[in-house]
Amino acid sequence: MEVEIHVIHYLIISTVMMFCGIYGFFTRKNLLALLISVELILNATNINFAVFNRYLFPGQLEGHFFSLFGIAIAAAETAVAIAIIINVYRNIKQVLTDDITDLKG
């Protein structure tokens, strides 16, 4: 038996990824885990763009281009974020959110 995969199946996956990312961003304690959660969100949007383009608007390429730009920019953001996290580590020898609470009030 052959199972056909429709838009809806992809969208379920991307939505689950998106909200897993949001959940992770609010609950995880490690800065690197936060970064991974954000990457989940960004990749969910990339899937969305690619799927919408492939299934709903097959004549054009806008969604694919958006995914490509999204991937490139996410890489740049991650590079900067990791550099800053390394700097945090060098300063206080910790990357847990519980330990970077000097600024509050």
Binding site: F25, L31, L34, L35, V38, L42, A74, E77, V80, A81, I84, I85, N87, V88, R90, N91, I100, D102, L103
Partner: peptide, 12 residues
């Protein structure tokens, strides 16, 4: 550094 980490994560 702490402010930078908070900013970039929120911006992303």
């Amino acid at each position: 550094a702490e402010a930078g980490a908070k900013f970039i994560l929120n911006a992303m």
